[in-house]
Design a protein around this nucleic acid. Structure first.
Length: 875
RNA sequence: GGGCGCUUAGCUCAGCUGGUUUAGAGCGUCUGCCUUACAAGCAGAGGGUCUGCGGUUCGAAUCCGUAAGCGCCCACCA
């Protein structure tokens, strides 16, 4: 075995082995199920660091669940990502000089499917490099047959329940993707623009009303001016009419206290077609609505002016023209929030249009309580607030998208007007005949709605549709795997996805979709910046795996990822992970390199094995507790320290045979069993190296795997023993420290004197002797002159030094120690001198303080003795 | 403009219902070691008074108030 662990071939080998043996596959059985559905990544996406974190966490949970006797099932899959994918396909076609409008729907979809087949599933392949133990046989896709049929059925069902309606509403329009968006798909960003002050001439007068606006290009859509009836400054405009600059249209001045008296000039231009608030004013006062924009954001015929010009070019031009016409009073810098499309990053245009909506009142109601009452638990819990606030202020969900890539809305329009909603054209025809009484209708007479459904309208069914719970309710799989156990996702999609899955879960299964939600943080670079392509600070996960090994990268991700906290990613973390792999590897080399003899187990090894078994029990219990709280990074740290500090640095040094000597059989086998236990505890975090070494501990049968081993059950830890060894370790450390400070070579054997009585039995003495390279330990009444002394708990120890002693240094150390102890005693005495403390504090607290006092006093006495002794010698 | 969260060693973070020796961990730093498992290592050490202020209490990093800084979410001020 090489002294450096090289993960490359080993990882590929075992992943294939796991696949070949179908270890990831799950079928319902008598065991308790443990289920996770993957947050489906974009089907044509590639793996980024966020996925790495998210999927590492899921794999850790799934592997741990398998090892605790559960029937673990992790279902992978991908999302069709309607807007994103369609945009990519449109872009690719554009490169070939093809416009979407040149193609029929069918032709376009063919291109889209080609694209999906070409790039689809790359990300799932990449997940295998990470070690993800997904049940690949169950891989789903939001647009595969089963999932599509589920979506359509749910649409029809909700329509029949009266929860889906169609209507003209003000929606968020994306002029680049040419579709409506839901409120959640709009991100507000600060925008540094200008506030323009425009002059509206008062009809029949030679005076002007000034309006402040950020969007002068919308004046062609103005159909009123609004003032606050209580504003004295604008009272002179009451009942008058004004003329829209350039346009020349005469519009009324209306009054509404919606207008903020303090803002701008107190006059508001009202453009009902292009502003949500203006729309409401328009409704209230029956104003005409002039839609001056085409779908792509250019000026429409209805604008009358600047027809065909882009909205932002138009803004610049109209400002120039207004200025030239003397109708621009002034302009000033202004910062406001502008809504952008989450996907295409262009400013959203509020637009009146006919869309499909899902009523939220009922669904929000059934989704709120389970989270508030902790039936579904959020980790961290702070997201409960966010969730509550959203549900309590929710608006209807715009579910239609003017796109082709997605699930087509199953609404069919009739020749004579009206429509029917049905799962298939055939069923639609039946309904249409019934509804119209016209038996001669044919399928060709029906025209299906051209729009698609929002991508999230399929994702929200994911935990149900993956087990076919919509099409085949109550089937064996949905009954077994649902509700799923844990959901691991980012807080950024708490509304898009998490909340809506909860709605669908209660609506269609009558039960929660998952019991726990683990919200991960955002992966940032070490300077705290978000990872982005433009900054170039986002490492390629696959390159990282090549460099550090999947186990190393997984550990790097987990070392600093408490639930919900952003992680500041640094290659150095992967390096730490890789180093740990190497440490494990070399421990194994050491143990397997020993010669084993059928000899009696030495006393020191008896102690060491008893002690380590307790140590193992204690850490395993800690880890169980940490896992139950989803504190995975702390669980990892616990086993990291157990392995590195307790097992490698202490235990192995304790039992290590002399060079050239064999180890006794008992200790050897116990050590291998501890190593085996450690590998199991480590396996969920580092699946590859643990499998490799587990397979080499002893000959294994074909089909054996650490993956399916159960965690060991340990007898309760012996706390007295653990404490005693902690004492022992302190003594060893103190002796090593004496060596270090005085430059005493390792090979030089020392004598340890225990002043008074020793608390160490023979076994412990052997261990101390071994670890500190002593020639002997003696119990003395009075320590030797010229010795370095130290105190552990209340026992004083001394190491005679002779030539190595430096009286001044020794004195300095003792005096510093004395000063500390006296300071400490003072704080204790202060408490004890306070009568109210002695009266009010719990008795055990007072007892403890008295113990502190006694201990400190005895240490102070010993220190004073030592100082006095040194001083007399020095004379 | 609301709401929430955070501020503990150089960095990243623990510290649950206030009292287990004048606060812990990992990494980094410093010192000494190429000691036949591992220099991707071994051994040892140093380093914070817990953002400021005020309060409650016998006792506060831990509870309350307040100020400042940072972050997140929500919101139609043109």
């Amino acid at each position: 075995m090489d002294s450096v662990y090289s993960p490359q071939q080993i990882e590929a080998k075992w992943y294939q082995y796991w696949l070949d043996n179908k270890f990831f596959h799950s079928e319902p059985d008598g065991r308790e199920p443990y289920t996770i559905v993957i947050p489906p990544p974009n089907v044509t996406g590639v793996l980024h660091m966020g996925h790495m974190l998210n999927n590492t966490i899921q794999d850790i949970l799934v592997r741990r669940a398998r090892m605790t006797g559960k029937n673990a099932c992790w279902v992978p899959g991908t999302d069709h990502a309607s807007i994103a994918t369609e945009a990519k396909v449109v872009g690719k076609l554009a490169e070939q000089g093809i416009k979407k409008t040149d193609l029929t729907r069918e032709q376009f979809l063919e291109h889209a499917w080609d694209w999906t087949r070409e790039h689809g599933g790359i990300i799932l392949k990449q997940l295998r490099r990470l070690g993800a133990s997904c049940d690949w046989d169950r891989t789903g896709f939001t647009m595969d047959e089963q999932r599509s049929a589920s979506v359509i059925r749910v649409f029809c069902d909700l329509y029949d329940k009266g929860l889906i309606y169609r209507g003209v509403r003000m929606v968020n329009w994306d002029p680049k993707a040419l579709t409506a968006l839901s409120d959640e798909e709009v991100v507000f960003q600060e925008h540094h623009g200008k506030l323009y002050y425009l002059r509206y001439k008062v009809e029949g007068e030679d005076s002007y009303a000034i309006v402040a606006t950020t969007r002068p290009e919308t004046i062609m859509g103005d159909t009123a001016m609004c003032i606050n009836p209580n504003n004295p400054k604008t009272a002179w405009l009451k009942g008058k009419r004004v003329i829209v600059p350039l346009v020349g249209r005469v519009i009324p001045v209306i009054e509404d206290d919606y207008v903020d008296i303090e803002f701008g000039t107190g006059c508001l231009k009202v453009t009902p077609a292009h502003d949500v608030n203006d729309y409401m004013l328009g409704e209230k006062y029956n104003l005409p609505s002039i839609d001056i924009f085409n779908d792509n954001g250019t000026l429409s015929e209805a604008a009358g002016l600047y027809v065909g010009m882009d909205r932002f070019d138009c803004r610049e031009q109209i400002v120039r023209d207004l200025d030239a016409a003397g109708l621009l009073e002034k302009q000033e810098d202004y910062t406001n929030n502008v809504g952008f499309s989450e996907r295409t990053h262009v400013p959203i245009e509020p637009k009146l249009s006919m869309q499909w909506f899902l009523k939220m009142e009922h669904l929000a109601k059934i989704a709120l309580d389970p989270v508030i009452e902790d039936d579904i638990r959020f980790y961290p819990a702070k997201y409960k607030n966010t969730y509550k606030h959203w549900l309590e202020n929710i608006k209807d969900w715009c579910i239609s998208r003017q796109l082709w890539w997605g699930h087509r809305i199953p609404a069919y329009y009739l020749p004579e007007g009206g429509f029917v909603v049905a799962e298939s054209a055939q069923q639609a025809l039946e309904k249409a005949k019934q509804q119209t009484g016209n038996e001669s209708l044919t399928i060709e007479d029906l025209r299906q709605d051209p729009d698609c459904l929002d991508t999230w309208f399929s994702s929200w069914l994911w935990p149900i549709s993956l087990f076919n719970g919509i099409l085949d309710p109550g089937n064996k799989e949905i009954s077994y795997y649902y509700p799923t156990t844990d959901l691991v996702t980012g807080p950024d999609i708490i509304f898009f996805w998490v909340a809506r899955m909860i709605m669908a879960g209660y609506e269609y299964e009558g039960k929660m979709p998952f019991r726990n939600v683990y919200f991960t943080g955002i992966v940032r670079d070490k300077l705290g910046r978000k990872m982005s392509k433009s900054l170039g600070n986002s490492p390629d996960p696959i390159e990282l795996i090549d460099k550090y090994g999947a186990d190393g990268v997984r550990m790097g991700m987990m070392l600093s990822a408490p639930a919900g906290n952003d992680i500041l990613f640094d290659d150095a973390l992967c390096e730490q992970g890789r180093n740990f792999n190497n440490k494990i590897w070399n421990c194994f080399r050491l143990i397997k390199g020993w010669q084993v003899a059928d000899i009696e187990q030495p006393l020191y090894a008896q102690l060491a094995t008893r002690w380590f078994s307790s140590q193992l029990a204690r850490t395993a219990a800690q880890m169980e507790d940490l896992f139950s709280k989803y504190r995975l990074s702390e669980a990892l740290m616990a086993v990291y320290k157990l392995f590195w500090d307790e097992f490698s640095a202490w235990y192995l040094e304790m039992i290590k045979p002399q060079y050239g000597s064999p180890i006794d059989k008992t200790t050897y086998h116990l050590t291998l069993s501890y190593f085996d236990s450690l590998l199991k505890l480590l396996h969920p975090f580092m699946p590859f190296i643990t499998e490799e070494l587990w397979q080499n501990i002893e000959p294994r049968k074909t089909g054996d795997t650490i993956m399916l081993q159960q965690l060991d059950v340990y007898p309760a830890a012996d706390n007295d023993l653990l404490d005693a060894v902690e004492n022992l370790k302190q003594v060893v450390t103190a002796i090593r420290n004496i060596r270090q400070q005085r430059n005493i070579p390792q090979k030089q054997q020392l004598v340890l004197q225990v002043v008074g009585a020793s608390i160490f039995d023979e076994a412990m003495s052997q261990v101390i002797t071994k670890l500190s390279n002593l020639s002997q330990i003696t119990v003395v009444g009075q320590k030797s002159a010229n010795s370095a002394s130290f105190i552990v708990t209340v026992t004083e120890y001394a190491v005679p030094l002779d030539a190595f002693i430096n009286v001044d240094d020794e004195l300095k150390k003792l005096e510093a120690d004395l000063q500390y102890q006296e300071g400490f005693l003072a704080t204790v005495m202060k408490k004890l001198a306070n009568e109210r403390f002695v009266q009010n504090a719990k008795p055990e607290v007072v007892v403890m303080e008295r113990k502190k006092q006694a201990d400190a006093e005895s240490r102070i006495a010993a220190l004073k003795d030592s100082i006095a002794a040194i001083k007399t010698q020095a004379k």
